[in-house]
Design a protein around this nucleic acid. Structure first.
Length: 580
RNA sequence: CGGGGUGUACCUCAGUGGUAGAGGGGUAGCUUUGGGAGCUACCAGUCGAGGGUUCGAAUCCCUCCACCCCGACCA
């Protein structure tokens, strides 16, 4: 393809509103254009990338026996009432929903468990048909509170979603394992470095889930990994061995101390330098919301540890749990923010504690009175120890649960998430099959998602330098680029044309820069769009000599024009890319 | 949803009460030709929207909207 005949428009200047590299580079290179917050046009080059990712996704799913279909983006409210998710998704303001012309309520699908379950109902009717996995690649709609980072978190994005149907939990686990392998193959074939991690299933529900994280410092997700044991989990889910409780001090009666303006553990350390952080117990107030009620929840936690709202939300089985605002804190404690404690809380506040408080005695805690804390507080003597549970956030340096290794915190971009749903949707929506005895049983389902557009962005996040993008060969918009130095030079025109035609005929995706531009501009553009294999047709064209100039990792080399195709073939083969 | 910021040409931005600007970009010409070359001419804006103050508003005031950032939240 000749650049002069394509929509190839690059910008010299960085877009002002792009925070992450992938976003800035995609805009500069003309891959995407923003239409509104979190809504983008995918330009021709971007679309080529997306199609390549989609193709890899398709091939790997099909190879594993999955079947592709296409479901509607527009979905009726009734379906979502059946699964019981309408309220939660509306509450979380993630669902685009509106009335149609006749007053019927519909939504734009953020995910498709309801539709797929409804679709197989009456079609998958016998155990003899199982297992089956169906998938689609489609645009999803989610009204993200804060879309950001370009394609990383959009309100409309391309997603592959798959759903498995099995007769029982064992079957579901097998289908899940198959898909997990499919996912590994997909991201490996895309040329990405990634880490599969244990995850929290969130609003989707179900028992087990794993996320596939592309390793990148700019990722939105923090993950806890241990190289010694191989443990890897999203910090939302991760558990670790809590450092042992502090030594128990001599028993003295509880006493109240004035602590003016000491609202944090740090402030308190300045006041009581001899008291270890481990013997300061924080009490954090939250507002938990369910469909039909809400409650203030106070959670105690050791001063050297942090709380994990996701674990708390799951424990409470709440729709949402958020930090209490100033007003609510005052209402529950009677004090300003920073002085909450377990003693003397308002009666309707639910008091819980993180496991880290177990075994702590003689501690400091808030006095529920502005500028006041209690010291030398003992569980059992001064108050009952509240029910404890693991609500803790894993920290770098923690021991793994088995004590065999040390956890470190890294960052990643979530490009895939797989779930074992169990019978949540099949039961809620009355979707069942006949087993060997002719008895009706609900399906055991799994669901599996890949953010296709996010995967493309993650590839740039992982592969770029100061000059531009560096695409992995399997998902690059073009495999190879011919950079012709002087358009109009007879020898160069002829050789570039010959090479272009030869490569094209061989099935190589080749982009030919035939523009009448200075050499500098062409090299800058070539670096920016990051096509991995490059050939410069220049001053030696008359001798059928060209320069082999890969985007990265190779010295420029003068080679015969006849060696170009073999070289490209070799590079493609090495990257596992089939052509022709 | 709370806090902060920004809206002026296709892009990046300057312009604090008196004729709407620069650079990039595009077009034409000349020159140049291996890492975003030079010169000349031209193209390009309801100054986010509405209201107010003023002889006069991009500029001051009010309301709204959009976008970006931080937080909260989030497959």
């Amino acid at each position: 393809m000749r650049i002069s005949k394509t929509l190839f428009v690059t910008l010299k200047e960085e877009p002002a509103d792009a925070e992450v590299r992938s976003h800035a580079l995609m805009v500069r290179a003309g891959f995407i254009q923003q239409i509104a917050a979190g809504i983008y046009v995918y330009g021709p080059l971007m679309w080529r990338v997306l199609k390549k990712v989609e193709q890899i996704v398709r091939e790997e799913h099909d190879k594993a026996g999955c079947q592709e279909l296409l479901m509607p983006a527009l979905q009726p409210r009734e379906l979502w009432e059946e699964s019981g998710r309408w309220d939660r998704y509306v509450q979380e303001k993630i669902l685009y929903h509106f009335e149609d012309g006749r007053g019927r309520e519909v939504c734009l699908g953020p995910t498709h468990e309801e539709v797929i379950t409804n679709f197989v109902k009456g079609k998958l009717t016998s155990y003899k048909q199982l297992p089956q996995t169906l998938y689609q690649i489609q645009t999803k709609f989610r009204d993200e509170m804060r879309p950001r980072f370009g394609l990383m978190r959009g309100r409309e994005f391309v997603m592959k979603d798959a759903y498995s149907f099995d007769a029982d939990a064992e079957g579901m686990a097998e289908s899940y394992a198959v898909l997990r392998d499919v996912y590994r193959s997909i991201f490996t074939r895309c040329g990405l470095r990634f880490t599969p991690v244990e995850a929290d299933p969130g609003a989707i529900g179900g028992s087990g889930s794993e996320e596939f994280m592309v390793d990148a410092d700019t990722g939105e997700d923090a993950i806890a990994v241990c190289h010694a044991t191989g443990y890897a989990a999203n910090v939302e889910k991760a558990a670790s061995r809590i450092p042992p409780p502090p030594a128990i001090p001599a028993e003295v009666p509880m006493h109240k101390e004035p602590t003016p303006d000491a609202k944090s553990c740090e402030d308190l350390r300045a006041l009581f330098p001899d008291l270890p952080l481990e013997r300061m117990l924080k009490t954090i107030l939250y507002r938990a919301v369910w469909t039909d009620r809400e409650q203030t929840v106070a959670v105690m936690c050791r001063g050297d540890r942090e709380l994990n709202v996701v674990k708390l939300t799951n424990h409470l089985d709440a729709l949402a749990v958020e930090l209490a605002d100033e007003r609510l804190v005052k209402e529950a404690t009677g004090a300003d923010v920073g002085f909450a404690g377990p003693i003397g809380l308002k009666k309707d506040v639910l008091l819980l504690a993180d496991s880290s408080v177990e075994g702590v005695q003689g501690f400091l805690c808030g006095g529920n009175e502005t500028d006041t804390h209690y010291l030398d507080v003992w569980f059992g003597r001064d108050l009952e120890q509240p029910p404890t549970h693991d609500f803790g956030l894993v920290q770098a340096g923690d021991q793994t649960l088995d004590g065999e290794g040390t956890i470190e915190i890294t960052r990643g971009i979530e490009v895939g998430h797989i779930f074992q749903l169990g019978t949540k949707y099949s039961e809620a929506m009355g979707c069942s099959f006949a087993d060997e005895n002719g008895k009706l049983q609900p399906f055991h389902m799994g669901c599996y998602g890949i953010g296709v557009s996010r995967t493309a962005a993650a590839a740039i996040e992982q592969g770029h330098d100061e000059s531009g993008m560096i695409w992995p060969l399997p998902i690059a918009p073009f495999h190879a680029m011919i950079i012709q130095m002087r358009a109009g030079d007879e020898a160069q025109d002829a050789l570039a044309q010959e090479l272009h035609d030869q490569l094209h005929a061989a099935g190589v995706d080749v982009l030919w820069d035939d523009r009448k531009l200075g050499a500098g501009a062409k090299f800058k553009d070539a670096d920016l769009v990051g096509i991995p294999l490059r050939v410069v047709v220049g001053r030696d064209a008359a001798d059928r000599k060209v320069e082999w100039k890969p985007r990265v990792g190779g010295e420029t080399e003068v080679i015969s024009a006849d060696d170009v195709l073999p070289r490209i073939r070799a590079a493609l083969e090495e990257a596992g890319v089939q052509i022709g």
